[in-house]
Design a protein around this nucleic acid. Structure first.
Length: 953
RNA sequence: GCCGGGAUGAUGGAAUGGUAGACAUAAGGGACUUAAAAUCCCUGGGCGCAAGCCGUGCGGGUUCGAGUCCCGCUCCCGGCACCA
């Protein structure tokens, strides 16, 4: 027999498949359509490493699996080739980006082809192809038409390394450039912006229609959109202006003791401020700082009071001071906040530093539950109380233990003040309840505590509110007290134990506050010091107070509009022109595509202008404005200037998946019948683009839905997340670490099929795992075994193999459907190990094995399919073997025999054996009896699983 | 701080609440070989001569029975974060 030699067969079959076009997708067939898509790659100059094909192999396995199930499968591939990396590579290697992209694409395609994918290359797309980007430009025009694309001059992220403006999504979370790692600056400049914020709510809500997306990706998008529901409330200034603030805590309005503007707030420029110089100096200082410095952790708050300016708190009409401070962000909410130091950590910190009043307006509130829930028919006492945290010289704290309603209550000492002065009441409670008399007061804890509960000792509801004091005993001197009367007992406990001992929630809360450095209560509670709103819960008060002061309930989003211009060469030209007065006009759709011109120097200018600006005969163009307000070229017309900014890398990838369906259409981006036939994408596979590509594409798709280009609201109903592969040393694969392993070497050493199998076997698909080249040996050995089994073929089936074969068919089918490729491979290994032990294998059985292996190892299976079985049609077009349900029914079952839940043996019994019989055999066929220290008290039988003998100890 | 995900042998990882560690790699031993590679066989969580005991990050709980369910932690990865 010939040895298994992948080199002899892999290239051969790849060529034959291509010649016969077996993977070419027809537009219409009598089969059901199925669209499976990879996130298309950026053809960088580095080529592929072994991490990249993982997703491509997975979609390939899945696509072949679906084809064998009779689907008309669309599995395309293309190139996301505009953007900074391609351009930076070109600059570095001194070639034109076009040339660099062509070269890199060729290299990627060659590497990809080595692993034998079933892509339909006749539908290949490239975002830098004018026939493609014509439609990207067309969609931009549509957005402009709908008011979703606009020019802005706001400060934006500027990357000094890449010399271009960037979107928020292009930054790492530490504020550096995702591409080059430079610290990004804020720079005001003209730019095109897409109004993705108009879609914020739909992007958020529709995540709920995506049950087949990983939770983590959805959560990342929710965080990114960052919806927060609150109120917008206007504060009047003594200068006559009104300032709107955004708050999620309108319930705390009565506690707003100052307001704060972001230094960049436009109103600050125009107000008549007495200390104008000081204010301007501060604003200048803040402008110097990067975002990173400004938000550095643990940074002390700074700010400047606007002298001569006061605001009126609309709730209580009190005059309050106005500050600017850089802890308030210009680009969130309204750029101004009301400060409530009693209930906000940041305001508290600022208020302490600048000695601003702190006014408590929300109290912690506990309402009794279950046995101490307030009773409707009981009388309710309203009481003011004080409670005492008592410390002794050993640093222990005193609790009181009493029994009420058959449960033990443990809490601090305390009682009603009955209108007395607090200090007198404290002395009295201490003496009466504990007998101690000699103490000093350390502090009064400033947070009010409220509770409403049924007191079993008094048979009444009690609604209490009061403060906690911290006192220290100076001596153990005691007099007789309620302890001696037997009403309760005293319990001294060390600091660490207190939390676990206290079982009154409002006392537990007070203890927590006592331990905290800053006593800021930021939770919801009930209102105090808030006039007519006292007693309301925070939730109720939010809306009522907002209405009371004439504000409105409003949502704010963290998501920012999408900065869509880049001052770089290698991108789609933005199809707009300007007349001599600077008025902007959209280019007429008939002019598209606006071709990216050739240019001598495509390096960034750094001036905030794109290199396109230097090409006079492209920039300056004669034309006229049509009745529709669009620009068309006309040699006898006026001079216009073209927009020289280009689109970002993410433009083409926001809609590319539509184009595969109809790649050659000259009239439309996509034919609407074909769109309905194929979209949405059935399965989308790729790595972490949660807050970039995946949010942009969802936005773009919804826009296309709104203009009737697509028929559904979401492009990717099922997303399979791909984990990346680390180098063998556990680090990221990188030239820098010299730990890159490329697929070419793996295919060369082990063959494409063994490589493919290992990529699928390496671990759960979504897990990040380190590569291990030794591991490929395992899948190669497995294929060698499969190869050798063809020597053992007989016409008749081997009955010993029927059950495991059919079980494996079922298991593999289920696993591929669920993207559990690692367990699919392991079960094929188990099957082949079983076959190895047998004398022979039936011809049909072997054929079934080849078929379930075919999606993973397309070459070796095709080779055997033709040479051994003499088939005329490809195994990849054959029909997936269905498992026979009757063959996977066991005739016997294994029963675990346990004593007190511990496994002591197993028995095997025929299906249908009676419970009594099983219990008998459990004793007779195992050694369980030696564990019977007495007669079993109970014998428990769990059908088809276990017998458990319960022995009393 | 908030949110999401995770923690199982030397390693990647299996395991509808019912024999933990399938499958694979590395390692050790043996066969074949002049030798090596390849191949085949055996061992392969810890302790123990054995019977057995202990073991799925930690502490509790539910259950006849928990890697799996519940409560409370620790640590790791990821997202957001002076976002009002």
């Amino acid at each position: 027999m010939q040895d298994y030699n992948p080199k002899d067969i892999e290239k051969k079959w790849q060529d034959i498949w291509a010649q016969n076009g077996i993977y070419t997708t027809k537009d219409t067939t009598d089969k059901k359509n199925f669209y499976i898509l990879d996130m298309f790659p950026y053809p960088s100059g580095e080529g592929l490493h072994v991490g990249h094909p993982r997703g491509y192999i997975a979609t390939d396995v899945y696509s072949r699996f679906k084809r064998m199930h009779g689907f008309n499968v669309l599995h395309p591939m293309g190139w996301d080739a505009f953007g900074l990396p391609a351009e930076n590579f070109a600059i570095k290697n001194k070639v034109h980006p076009r040339e660099a992209v062509d070269r890199n694409v060729a290299r990627f395609k060659e590497q990809l082809s080595l692993i034998g994918p079933d892509y339909d290359w006749s539908r290949e797309i490239d975002t830098t192809d004018p026939n493609f980007y014509k439609w990207t430009q067309w969609m931009f025009l549509k957005m402009y038409e709908k008011g979703l694309a606009y020019q802005s001059h706001e400060p934006i992220n500027w990357c000094p390394g890449c010399q271009t403006g960037l979107a928020n999504e292009d930054l790492e979370s530490d504020g550096t450039c995702e591409r080059c790692g430079s610290v990004v600056e804020k720079k005001p400049m003209r730019q095109w912006v897409l109004k993705i914020t108009d879609y914020a709510d739909r992007l958020l809500v529709d995540l709920n229609t995506l049950p087949k997306w990983p939770e983590g990706v959805k959560e990342a998008q929710r965080n990114w959109i960052g919806k927060s529901e609150g109120s917008e409330i206007a504060f009047a200034l003594n200068t006559g202006e009104n300032v709107k603030v955004f708050t999620t805590r309108a319930d705390t309005l009565f506690g707003a003791t100052y307001i704060v503007f972001a230094p960049e707030h436009p109103l600050v420029q125009t107000l008549d401020i007495e200390n104008r110089d000081e204010v301007n100096t501060y604003i200048a200082q803040v402008a110097e700082k990067t975002e990173i410095d400004r938000t550095a952790e643990g940074k002390e708050k700074t700010g400047v009071k606007l002298e001569g300016i006061v605001a009126i708190n609309p709730a209580n009409k009190e005059e309050i001071p106005v500050y600017i401070a850089d802890y308030v962000l210009a680009h969130y909410g309204t750029g101004a906040v009301m400060a409530v130091p009693a209930h906000d950590e940041r305001d508290f910190e600022f208020a302490k530093k600048y000695e601003l009043p702190i006014k408590e307006v929300v109290s912690y509130y506990y309402e009794g539950a279950e046995d101490n829930a307030p009773k409707e028919d009981a009388e309710t006492l309203h009481r003011e109380v004080i409670d005492i945290i008592i410390e002794n010289e050993k640093g222990e704290f005193l609790l009181i233990k009493e029994t009420a309603n058959n449960t033990e209550k443990i809490h601090f000492v305390g009682g009603g003040t009955e209108g007395e002065n607090e200090i007198e009441a404290l002395e009295k409670e201490l003496r009466e309840e504990t007998g101690y008399t000699d103490f000093e007061i350390i502090e009064k804890i400033p947070n009010l505590v409220s509770a409403f509960a049924f007191r079993h000792t008094k048979l009444k509801n009690q609604k209490i509110h009061g403060y906690f004091f911290h006192i220290k005993l100076k001596s153990e001197n005691r007099v007789a007290s309620e302890v001696e009367e037997g009403r309760h007992s005293l319990l001294w406990a060390p600091k660490e134990k207190i939390k676990d001992l206290i079982n009154w929630p409002h006392h537990a809360y007070a203890w927590e506050m006592f331990l905290k450095k800053d006593r800021v209560f930021t939770d919801f509670g009930i209102l105090i010091n808030s006039g007519e709103f006292n007693g309301l819960t925070s939730e109720e008060a939010k809306q009522k107070i907002t209405e009371f002061v004439g504000g409105e309930m409003k949502s704010t989003y963290r998501l920012k509009d999408w900065v869509f211009s880049r001052q770089r060469y290698w991108g789609e030209p933005i199809p707009m022109v300007f007349d001599a007065d600077g008025n902007v006009y959209p280019v007429d759709a008939s002019e598209l595509p606006i071709l990216l011109p050739n240019v001598d120097s495509y390096e960034p200018t750094g001036t905030g202008e794109s290199p396109l600006a230097t090409i006079d005969d492209w920039v300056n163009v004669r034309g006229k404005i049509t009745d529709q307000g669009t620009f068309v070229q006309d040699a006898s017309g006026q001079m216009f200037r073209r927009e020289t900014n280009t689109m970002p890398q993410w433009a083409g990838s926001s809609w590319y998946y539509l184009r595969y369906v109809d790649p050659k259409n000259n009239q439309y981006a996509i034919d609407s019948t074909k769109e309905k036939d194929w979209l949405p994408v059935d399965v989308y596979v790729g790595g972490d683009h949660a807050t970039r590509h995946l949010i942009y594409a969802r936005f773009w798709h919804k826009f296309l839905y709104d203009i009737d280009v697509v028929s559904g609201l979401e492009p990717f109903p099922r997303l399979e997340f791909l984990g990346f592969i680390l180098a063998e040393d556990g680090r990221k694969m990188s030239k820098r670490w010299k730990n890159v392993i490329n697929p070419d070497d793996m295919v060369n050493r082990f063959g494409a099929d063994a490589f493919r199998l290992y990529e699928m076997f390496i671990g759960p698909f979504e897990n990040t795992v380190p590569w291990n080249t030794d591991g490929v040996v395992g899948t190669r050995r497995f294929l060698e075994k499969v190869w050798k089994q063809k020597e053992k073929i007989k016409d008749e089936e081997n009955q010993n193999l029927e059950m495991i074969l059919h079980k494996t068919i079922k298991k593999i089918s289920d696993d591929i459907e669920a993207f559990k490729f690692n367990t699919a491979v392991s079960h094929m290994m188990i099957l082949v190990n079983e076959i190895t032990k047998e004398e022979y294998i039936g011809k049909n059985q072997y054929a079934s094995l080849l078929q379930i292996l075919a999606p993973f190892a397309p070459h070796i299976t095709e080779e055997i399919w033709y040479t051994v079985f003499g088939e005329k049609d490809s195994i990849h077009l054959s029909v997936w073997p269905e498992y026979d349900a009757s063959k996977i029914i066991e005739s016997t079952i294994k029963i675990v025999v346990q004593v007190n839940g511990k496994v002591r043996g197993t028995i095997e019994v025929p299906i249908g054996t009676s419970e009594d019989e099983i219990k008998k055999r459990a004793v007779s066929e195992t050694k369980v009896e030696q564990y019977f220290t007495s007669e079993p008290e109970k014998v428990l039988y769990i059908p088809n699983r276990a017998v458990n003998f319960i022995i009393k100890n």
